[in-house]
Design a protein around this nucleic acid. Sequence first.
DNA 1: CTGATTTGACCTAC
DNA 2: GTAGGTCAAATCAG
Length: 286
Amino acid sequence: MKHHSNGYLPQSAPSDHPSSLSDHRSAMKEIARGQSLVTQLRAIVLPALQADERCELVAQMFQNILDCSSKAMTELQLHHQSESQADEALVDDKKRVRRISSDESVKEGATGNPHHQHKRRKPGDLVSLETPVPHYDGRQWRKYGQKHINKAKHPRSYYRCTYRQEQDCKATKTVQQQDGSTGTDHPVMYTVVYHGQHTCKDNNGVDSSTDGSETNTQSSSDSRSTISTTCTDPYDHQPSIDDNKLSEKSADLVTKSMYESFNTTPFAPLDLDSWELDALLRFGSW
DNA sequence: CTGATTTGACCTAC
DNA sequence: GTAGGTCAAATCAG
């Protein structure tokens, strides 16, 4: 799968119904943009709030907004899929044949390989968004791989839920810096793609995936998404390897500390100008 | 010492 | 054959 430069859901090949599909596409783009903006805003605002009731209220409002957009995104995806399915029916048949045969070969233990699922993920099971803060999404992730993607300047990092083993949480995400954003003028933007649903509860016992409103995956994660990052991807500045390591580490540290302040303990106390609060509250009543 | 990250190898899909 | 995704040993950091 190629890096989708726009950072949104990868689309199947252009179909015969360009109008409706492109409508969906642009709607999804807009929603994703909205999610990204809210995410960025939340990343700025929440850490600046003192841990009091208002803070929780604000956090809840952000969450609600993101949940709403996630639901809308899901609806659109479903629509999009059902419409594009017809177009892909023929292709699907071919794929199915192939898949079956390959499954059989696996069953036969032709390889006896210890690695089980190296399947490519289905496009339908993902949600992507653009954010300058790819790590601070209220979830705990563990990096398990990094790869240079064809024609992309920056490597893609692969994360899975920290609780994958203990709670068998299947959620994963990939983070990739967008090619255009190298820094100076515009904030570095990352394309974050969430795969699979969180079935875990995060450590403070707050359920993550389950507030019911989050039936969809990543959106769930992504809705919680949030805040984060810092991630200066090592490759951003393309410094020495050592620098890379340093920056990654520090980014993760920041991420973690943000997580902690965000997730578990309420939020890091911070001074907040009254105008900021007013703006927030106004935003909340919106 | 323990847990997280890095990174090259490996696997599967295309 | 190539590209994307995952594994797991080695390495790093607290």
